[in-house]
Design a protein around this nucleic acid. Structure first.
Ligand SMILES: [Zn+2]
Ligand SMILES: [Zn+2]
Ligand SMILES: [Zn+2]
Ligand SMILES: [Zn+2]
Ligand SMILES: [Zn+2]
Ligand SMILES: [Zn+2]
Length: 894
DNA sequence: GAGTTTGAAACT
DNA sequence: CAGTTTCAAACTC
């Protein structure tokens, strides 16, 4: 119902806008909730910086500031709201109410300072509105994401948006790239935004933008990305820029200097962790079922809006500085099947874009989320955290529940969507690049070229690495791909749905904003093959659970989170990181094929027992629908999203996923419901993301979150404390949910995302306590069922309490029979329809080699690489100075 | 830092 | 779907 409302919550936020009645809620990520309401048309700067306003702020403030900033703001800000419910929401608590109302299409976003937590996201726009989400991540530190939401009445809006974006993005990007760094400059980057915003506003009166900063967290990206994609149906996410924290961050943050940047980076991670922590802390109780229900119902309204992602916009964003790439500005969305030109996300840290593209024309609302490093400063201290960071676990409950068989795989949707996008343009681009080479030939050819480039690049990379190594390798460094071009899952960055950053030591990298098209296309292909390819690797039975519990929790996995497909270890006995289960700090499950399993987090055999014992059933039942829980795993955790397996499952052709999924989640995890945890993903993330070291338990610390965070550190503490203070009281959860159901064609568009759960402070604390043992605590967040496909995903976040209650009872949301394919898919791409997403290509989408080869980083290869490198050198420190930077991330510390 | 081991991802 | 190859991280030295 409700019409298109958008509610956004953020800690920082500020929303200024008022006007339109469209509420967005973006909640995910964590717990905290700050809700902002944003009305359409108006802009909101969350991080403190959002747009214009922010700029100045940014410049001045450091990331930290931003953080604090944001947080503080959040309280105040507000924003607008729409009509009723939404308006009410505000930041905290009310949100729930709002949510309910809004649920249908609301998107809730929570942000704290730099961090942004999004509990659930639901976005829906009315027909006219488009929503875009951009995220920029810095490498390390911060991510900033902007969210702009603009509604446009008509399709034109899109165009406008595109224009805007394009114009903005390109210039900005270019600048950014060129300058490469400019930390300070970057801050200014906002300016670009501003203009854009303004322009956009002008152009589209209706649109509203919201920006908020988040710290960067790869995991988050994934989640978000994933989330979005899944949800994407409804909307498109345009840009996610990661900028690399380094450069951009600092700049964005306004931090001024290298140090700052470095710090930020460190922070970013920390932030991430922090976020996690927060999220944890916050715990969303469960998402409220009701919400979900609501959503489901809500969906009905069919909001056809779509979101478009705008990369270009970002460009404007601070980050953009780094990002250079003009590229995307113009993408037509073919995806949608229609030729609308849509802006594409250009530099996005995340690959979310793909999603964005899909959106249909009509609406254009863009949401960009930024994360700022703000927190970082504090975080910086903790820098260590970096390693740990990862914890965001998202868990998606996959419960198969069944509510709706139909759903099949919402996941598919995303993929589908992406595919659609990819389709034409991307291909074209690729082709061009390749020169038409034949595939095979290309391969070699490409490979050769690639090699050359690689060599060239390598030298650079080495340098970079060195730097990074110096600094901290861990923290900063990301992938080190030599031959995959960072377009395969071998690449941690790509797998995480994020663009490679300066800190990456990859050769011939195409996982950059500049190659957005390629990236998206590739993603689609991969997704077509395996809809879950980009889904969190860790799953948890989705029980609802009250948060906490598990006291015992053995540290091992908190709950019974398990690897989605299980490991296949033959020699490591699951005692080393070679084992993905172990790496993710989860025990092996029945889905594992390991031999001689000695996984300290839980042996395969044990798992079975557990499973049985725990009885997923219970959980599942409880949850029935879906819930997401966040589990803080030992390490980190995160918030997880839950997906329903059912959803995943194939009902819908599009997804197919289930069938396809290799292992078949189901098969592997017997239980019906699972939750995916972000964590795992994290774990999967590149080392920098991961925190190899510590995390484990150490980080986790028994003590609660704080410590854990602490590991990450203090920041977390602090953050947490703050968060709690702020948050806890306030919010409670909110949950949002949205549901959507879109399906049928476009009409609806809703997306639910749940990312973190909301939580109350209290809960949080408790949780933390509980958590003391790593794994023990769970947060419940959200969840719900995710219906990928249709979009109906409900995310719920809510306070634990509230939600939990609700959740229990409620559940099911959607079931809409129809959902199925997401709009996007439907529209855009191939009609996947039932068939499936994959169908088209099921097999390998990717052009593997041939194309791949063809792809040459091109100039980029050189240039880009160069640039980056250069940038790195430059940026890291700051705009001007190159040096530090790279390391910064790591180093940072400073 | 080079070299080896490992198991997932990609490919056949 | 099984078997093989490729890949990049984890690990070792
Ligand atoms: Zn890579
Ligand atoms: Zn990378
Ligand atoms: Zn790369
Ligand atoms: Zn294993
Ligand atoms: Zn295992
Ligand atoms: Zn095992």
């Amino acid at each position: 119902m409700n019409s298109p409302e958008v509610i956004i919550t953020t800690t920082t936020a500020t929303a200024s806008s008022n006007s339109s009645p469209i509420p967005l809620h973006l909640d995910f990520l964590d717990n905290r909730f700050i809700q902002w309401q944003v009305s359409m048309q108006s802009d909101i700067g969350i991080c403190g910086n959002t747009d214009r306003n922010n700029k100045s702020a940014d410049a001045v403030d450091d990331s930290r500031n931003s953080v604090a900033y944001s947080s503080s703001r959040s309280m105040n800000d507000t924003h607008k709201e729409n009509d009723d419910a939404n308006s009410t929401r505000d930041q905290t608590g009310t949100s729930s109410d709002c949510i309910d109302k809004c649920l249908p299409n609301p998107v809730a976003v929570d942000c704290k300072n730099s961090e942004v937590l999004v509990h659930q996201d639901v976005i829906f726009l009315d027909d006219a509105h488009q929503l875009t989400v951009d995220s920029y991540g810095d490498k390390n530190n911060c991510l900033s994401t902007k969210v702009d939401v603009s509604q446009t009445m008509s399709g034109q809006a899109e165009e406008d948006s595109l224009r805007q974006t394009a114009s903005e993005s390109e210039p900005l990007k270019n600048k950014e790239l060129d300058d490469s760094k400019r930390p300070s400059d970057e801050c200014p980057s906002f300016e670009p935004d501003l203009p854009v915003d303004d322009a956009s506003r002008k152009q589209q009166p209706e649109t509203s933008r919201v920006q908020y900063d988040m710290t960067w967290n790869p995991d988050l990206y994934r989640e978000v990305h994933f989330y979005f994609q899944s949800h994407a149906k409804t909307f498109q996410i345009v840009q996610a820029h990661q900028d690399y924290c380094e450069d951009a961050e600092a700049q964005l943050c306004g931090i001024g200097q290298k140090q700052a940047s470095q710090l930020q980076r460190g922070m970013s991670r920390r932030c991430l962790q922090f976020e996690d922590a927060q999220s944890q802390g916050t715990l969303p109780s469960s998402h409220s079922p009701s919400s979900t229900n609501n959503t489901a119902s809500s969906r009905s309204p069919a909001h056809t809006r779509e979101l478009e992602s705008l990369d270009s916009l970002h460009g404007g964003l601070t980050f953009s500085s780094r990002m250079n790439q003009p590229r995307a500005a113009t993408f037509p969305l073919q995806n949608i099947g229609k030729p609308l030109p849509v802006s594409k996300p250009s530099g996005i840290g995340l690959h979310l874009n793909s999603i964005a593209n899909t959106l249909p024309m009509g609406q254009s609302a863009t949401v960009s989320i930024k994360t700022t490093p703000s927190m970082s400063s504090r975080l910086g201290e903790n820098r260590n955290s970096c390693p740990n960071l990862p914890n965001f676990i998202e868990t998606m409950s996959i419960a198969p529940e069944d509510r709706i068989p139909e759903r099949r795989g919402s996941l598919a949707t995303s993929s589908a969507i992406s595919e659609s996008f990819i389709s034409e343009e991307s291909l074209n681009m690729l082709q061009q690049l390749d020169h038409q080479t034949t595939p095979q030939n290309k391969r070699k050819f490409d490979s050769e070229l690639a090699d050359n480039f690689e060599e060239f690049n390598q030298s650079r990379l080495k340098k970079q690495r060195k730097k990074s190594s110096n600094a901290d390798a861990d923290s900063c460094k990301r992938c080190n791909c030599k031959r995959s071009k960072c377009l395969k899952l071998y690449c941690d960055c790509f797998a995480a749905g994020i663009y490679c950053a300066e800190t990456c030591a990859c050769h011939g990298c195409f996982n950059r904003p500049e190659y957005e098209d390629t990236v998206l296309e590739t993603r689609q292909q991969i997704e077509s093959r395996n809809p879950l390819a980009f889904a969190p690797k860790i799953v948890q039975p989705a029980p609802e659970f009250p948060l906490v519990h598990e006291e015992d929790g053995s540290r091992s996995t908190p709950f019974s989170a398990r690897h989605k497909t299980g490991c296949n270890c033959k020699k490591s006995m699951c005692l080393k990181k070679y084992c993905e289960c172990y790496q993710a700090n989860v025990g092996c499950s029945s889905g594992c094929r390991c031999e001689g399993c000695k996984n300290v987090y839980g042996k395969k055999e044990e798992y079975g027992m557990i499973e049985e014992t725990q009885s997923y059933v219970e959980w599942s039942e409880q949850t029935s629908d879906n819930k997401l829980e966040m589990v803080p795993t030992n390490k980190d955790y995160m918030h997880a999203e839950l997906y329903d397996l059912h959803n995943l499952t194939p009902v819908t052709p599009s997804l197919q996923y289930s069938s396809r999924v290799k292992g078949g989640l189901k098969s592997r995890l017997s239980a019906g419901r699972y939750v995916l945890s972000a964590e795992s993903d994290l774990s999967m993330l590149p080392s920098h993301a991961r925190s190899p070291r510590n995390l484990h338990h150490d980080n986790l610390l028994p003590e609660s979150s704080k410590e854990t965070y602490g590991a990450f550190s203090r920041v977390s503490d602090y953050s947490i404390a703050e968060m709690m203070d702020q948050f806890s009281p306030r919010f409670n959860t909110l949950d949002d949910i949205s549901g959507l159901t879109p399906v049928p064609n476009l009409s609806s568009s809703t997306i639910m995302v749940a990312s973190s759960a909301s939580t109350k402070t209290i809960d949080w604390e408790n949780v933390s306590r509980l958590q003391s043992s790593p794994g023990s605590v769970r947060l419940s967040g959200f969840t719900g069922p995710v219906h990928w496909h249709s979009s109906s995903i409900t995310a719920v976040t809510s306070l634990a309490e509230n939600k939990s209650q609700e959740q229990d009872s409620q559940s099911g949301l959607h079931d809409t029979p129809e959902d199925d394919t997401p709009e996007i898919l439907k529209e855009a791409v191939t009609p996947i329809a039932p068939v499936k997403v994959s169908s088209p290509n099921k097999k390998r989408v990717s052009p593997p080699r041939s194309l791949m080869h063809q792809l040459v980083p091109k100039s980029t290869g050189n240039l880009k690489s160069t640039r980056r490198f250069v940038l790195k050198s430059l940026s890291p420190t700051r705009p001007g100075t190159p040096n530090t930077d790279s390391k910064e991330c790591t180093n940072n510390k400073q």
